[in-house]
């Protein structure tokens, strides 16, 4: 008998009493009070991001050039002039940087380790938890580029901000490789003392647009 047959056989015999699958109560809240893109959600997102030590830059109803200026300022203030960005971000977003590497999949992990920053978009942001979600698509890039560089600048548009976790999951495609990011990398492994910045980007800058 294969291990598969044996394990499945053991499970079936363990369930010999035929337990009924219970009805699942779905009284928990799924939608939020505020509709996606509302100003309240942008405020809540900013509050929660800052609570987890992300840096937030607000840009009003802006075009891609304004976003680029905010991205450029955020990196310049950290003395960073080089960044990698995925193919699908508007070129204006990185227009103020001296050295922009567009990722076509050609960069190895070691190449990325030598690049100080990455500039991407996000597909969804969750206000209640201060979370941005990357889906590996044209705006977010493959997973390695938002992981290896030490500073991640992420542009979030107000229309993509939802209030709750269930609203976010409903917008996402599980067939994509998803990364939910809530603040910079952190650990509490030493005496439960929270330290921001371990293996992932130690600095997270979120540009909230609109």
């Amino acid at each position: 008998m294969t291990a598969r047959e044996e394990v499945l056989g053991r499970i079936r015999s363990a369930l010999g009493d035929r337990p009924a699958a219970p009805p699942i109560p779905r009284e928990c809240l799924r939608g939020g009070v505020h509709s996606p893109g509302s100003p309240e959600l942008a405020l809540q997102l900013v509050d929660r991001l800052e609570d987890y030590r992300a840096t937030v830059v607000r840009v009003g109803a802006a075009d891609d050039g304004d976003i680029g200026r905010a991205v450029g300022d955020a990196l310049a203030s950290r003395e960073i002039g080089q960044a990698v960005t995925p193919r699908g971000t508007p070129r204006e977003w990185t227009g103020w940087l001296a050295d922009v590497v567009v990722d076509e999949g050609q960069l190895s992990a070691r190449d990325l380790d030598a690049i100080p920053a990455v500039v991407t978009g996000a597909v969804v942001a969750i206000a209640e938890t201060g979370t941005i979600v990357l889906d590996g698509g044209p705006l977010c890039g493959r997973r390695a580029i938002t992981l290896v560089p030490d500073t991640h600048v992420c542009v979030v548009r107000a229309r993509d901000i939802v209030q709750t976790v269930p609203e976010a999951l409903a917008r996402l495609d599980p067939q994509r490789p998803l990364t939910f990011v809530s603040g910079p990398s952190a650990t509490s492994d030493i005496e439960l003392d929270r330290v921001e910045g371990v293996h992932g980007p130690r600095t997270l800058v979120v540009v909230v647009v609109g």
């Binding site: 929660r48 987890y52 999949g105 969750i126 209640e128 938890t129 201060g130 979370t131 590996g136 493959r142 997973r143 976790v165 599980p174 067939q175 994509r176 490789p177 998803l178 990364t179 939910f180 990011v181 809530s182 603040g183 910079p184 990398s185 952190a186 992932g200």
Partner: peptide
């Protein structure tokens, strides 16, 4: 004790861009 942990990754088989 966080609203959301810093990173959650999901993957479905193997992925290309």
């Amino acid at each position: 004790g966080e609203r959301m942990n810093p990173y959650t990754s999901t993957w479905t088989g193997v992925h290309t861009v």
